[in-house]
Design a protein around this nucleic acid. Sequence first.
DNA 1: TAGATTGTTAATCGATTAACAATC
DNA 2: TAGATTGTTAATCGATTAACAATC
Lengths: 215, 215
Amino acid sequence: MIILPVNKKRHNEPIPEPTLRRIPKYYRFLLSEQNKDTEYISATTIAEFTKFKPIQVRKDLQIAGAVGRPKIGYEMKSIIKTLESFLGYDNITESFLVGVGHLGTALLNHGQFDEHGVSIVVAFDNNPTLIDTTINGIHIKDVKKFKNLAERMNIKVGIISVPEEQVQATCDMMVDAGMKAILNLSSTPLVVPDDVVVQSLNIGVALALLIKKLQ
Amino acid sequence: MIILPVNKKRHNEPIPEPTLRRIPKYYRFLLSEQNKDTEYISATTIAEFTKFKPIQVRKDLQIAGAVGRPKIGYEMKSIIKTLESFLGYDNITESFLVGVGHLGTALLNHGQFDEHGVSIVVAFDNNPTLIDTTINGIHIKDVKKFKNLAERMNIKVGIISVPEEQVQATCDMMVDAGMKAILNLSSTPLVVPDDVVVQSLNIGVALALLIKKLQ
DNA sequence: TAGATTGTTAATCGATTAACAATC
DNA sequence: TAGATTGTTAATCGATTAACAATC
């Protein structure tokens, strides 16, 4: 019988959504502490700065597979590595972006998604002025070439930053080209087959939530 | 003794976060159905398209204060109005934006936040080329004038779309100018006093979550 | 050793789901 | 009337929190 190492949980049980949303916050905080050469950090400290409760931080860290030492805390370097690998930041997935307007351009210039385990390898647009130019080292190609390239490069992740009225059509095109995960930056709700995962990021909705919290 | 109308819940009990995140999705779907002149819609139908369960939709709608009719469903017009007012989309809050780069420009051009109850009334930057120009009818002013204007116009909501390294400084400036709600579009975690609400919208994190879901 | 912190088990809390009565 | 759907009450499930033992 094979004895599994360290954290079995991670491989079997589903990870609670709330945990999944909190862990990137711990991670960000740890990165910002990293240079202050504190060798160990306690759940209490993490909790204080991220405004969660110590016990919750401990639970979450456990789910992520982090191991600490009583009285000492968690080793800085090791906990960062653990969270990185838990979040998949150490394993880069390639993606395609469609729509090089202001938002698309902002994303291409940002170029720090590598930190989050994703890289935009090619961008697409239908504007002839943009086609065959480059932003931040990323080539912009005719959207007509999307499917062909996606299949050749075996890309499964698409980012949509086109105007609202083209969003669903772009999505359909992506699905047809074999995308299995789509990031939707518009406020149009996407209709996709069941085997395609969608993540929507809607600034308007975020603003509305912010204001609701304010009241 | 005064008898309260319709939905007491809404005024007393806190609204579950998950509910708050689902309701905008129902709302979007309803808008898209609106023109198909269906006069009534059932929770089952909403559930089908938004991929939630009928019972959950009913519960959420109840929390939002919607009232339906057995066998018939919810009246289209009235349910849209109810959700609109629940989400605060019918009551516009004014906000200031700082940072007119590609992302900021995208936000100013988007200009559909009104739908979500927020309007950007003035934008700020420190780039002399941009100052005193206009995007989509919104004036861009010197960021030095932020505090003064914020106080005069009694603005409490700020949107940060500056480069990562200026994010915390911008945030501090906003807090000093009296902002009580801040939308952070960077991946830098903000440090704010307890009475300031922050909503972070991080595209990198969203991408990472998407990919985690994919696996 | 005493104090602090992790890790674990149990208790609590809240959200989701199920069951069913009320109603059109 | 029969069937469908809401609204409500109860049961279940899962996440958060508390308590405490283990450990450095």
